[in-house]
Structure formats: structure tokens, C-alpha cells
Amino acid sequence: MAQVGLWVAGWLAAGVLSSQVDPRHYEGGRSRDEQARARRNRSALAAMMGEFRTSVSDMLFIKTERYMHGGVAYRHDAAAPAHGAQDLAAEMAEEAAHEDEHGHDGHGEEHDFVCGSQGAETVVPRAEKDFRGWIGDLYREVKPWRDPSKPHLHTDGRELLPWFRLMTLSDPHYVQGYLAGGFWLQKQEGDAAMEFIEEGLRNNPDAFQLYFSRGLLRMKRSRAPAAGPLEEADRLLFSAAREDFLRAAELGLAQRPRDGQEDASSPDWRTYQENDLQAACRMAILLSERLGDSRTAERCRARFAVLGPLFPPE
């Protein structure tokens, strides 16, 4: 009888405890951006479960790095963003501009982004640094290996997509996974990129780079010329994109440290985030002007002046 009582008590306690567990409130993990750590952890159990999940996403992150380099394992820089997540602004805005110039033919040359691990040593060291002698030589033959002093191999990011899907399933707060996955997905047909970024926004409503990414995706849908009158459909798309850029700019400004520099005093703010924030501000101003809303454009110029000169002097 006592045993039955203990079982019942145990089940009740488990029920009560499980209602207190919310793994989504764990905000640790190496791969987080600052905004993903904005909220505090709420329970130890959630933290433990969260640690497992973020560890899985970190491992998958390393997997995407290796896929990108044709399997070559480089010693990973924890601060480096995922491929496709770095300088998203530069990548996508430049690509959009490139398409404008070429009339949206969709056959433009694929941009070769700046590799975050360029110059990094390989996990299997080069011969002069490897104490293992001929065993090391065999490792360099058997494992995917490339002399780290040579330019890195970069494969098609398409094969990375399953890992980004798993990464964000295991850790829905992994903003970089959504950004990089969205970047590679937008090169594919269909609306998958937009759906993926919107899923990211549902899970991370404070992630400014996701708003920026959505704005860029919206602009990519437009077929409007660089100048001249806008059709109604394009006007609606541009308006929605501008709202995204404005939201990204406001959120980014709120999260940005005072000087916006990447240093020890602001370990969570990286150069690529600063670049994305500046690009979001630029896009908000440019789109306001394109929509003929000069008041908003002026207001944005004043509001974003804190970032320094956003446009090169004319």
C-alpha cells in the first residue's frame, strides 16, 4: 500500500515539476547571439536540458563548417558566425543589387563570401607541426585535409540545408542557424527561405538580424526597377520590407553596446552584427526615399546618426 502511495506521489510530483520545465528559457550555449541570451534562465532543469540542446546545435554548426569546406576540419573560432550568417547585409543586399543590374535573370555569378575560418589551422595539423610522424602522414591522406595556407575549398551550400534544419529543431533559439539556413535557402526555388526565417522570428522575436533577413527576402521578390514609379504590388512589398528594416534597426540599436566595437567589453557584439545593423539602417532610409516618404527618411537619418556616417560622402 505504501509503495502504491509512493508511486502516486511520484507521478504527481513529476507532473508538477514537468509543468515548470520550459527548455526554451535556457539561454546558454556558445553559439548564441546576444539577443538570444536576453532573457534569464528560469529553472535548473530547463538549463540542463537546454545545455544538451545547444551542445547538439553547436556540434551541427561545426558539421556545417566542415561540409562547407568539403569535409576539411579547421580549428573553429567560437566567435565566427556560421557560413551565410556573416555580413548577411553585404551578401544579400549586394546580391539584390547585382540582380537589379542584370534584370533579375537569376543566373548571376554566385558570390564567394568571406570565409570565417580563413587562415585557421586544420584539426589534423600540417606535417611540420605533427609529432606523429608517418601516422600523421597517413591521417593527412585518409582524412579530408588541405594545407591551411592554401585558399579554402567552398562547396555548394545546398547540402548544408538538412543540418540547418536539424540545428534549429534542436535549438529554436539558434539565430545564426536561421540566418545561414535562410541565406542558402533563398538560392533555392519556392518560399522555403521566407517560411524558415518566419519560423525563426516566431522563436526569436528579438533577433534583429532575422527582421533584416526577412526584409531582404521581401525585396528579392520585387521586380521593380531601380528608379521610376512603383507598381502597387512592389509598393506593398517595399513597405513591408521597410517595416522589417525599421524594426531590425530599432532592435539592433537597443542591443548594440555604446561604441558598437567588437572587444572584450562587449563580447556578444560582433563586427558582422554591427555591419548588419548599419545595413538595416541604410536600407530603411533608402526604401523610405524610394517610397517617396522623405519625412521618414529624414527621421531615420537623424535617429541612426549614432552609428556614424552610413553612406559614403557624395
Binding site: R66, Y67, G70, G71, I135, L138, Y139, E141, V142, K143, P144, L153, T155
Partner: peptide
């Protein structure tokens, strides 16, 4: 040392071992 799976995944890049 006897695990070639990493290269076997990226077959379009790596040639067979000598």
C-alpha cells in the same frame, strides 16, 4: 585511421586513395 567515411561523403571532391 581506418575510417574513410569523411572522404566517402564528399565524393565529388576527393579522389580515391593511392
Amino acid at each position: 585511421l581506418l575510417d574513410l567515411s569523411e572522404k566517402a561523403v564528399h565524393i565529388e571532391i576527393w579522389p580515391p586513395l593511392g
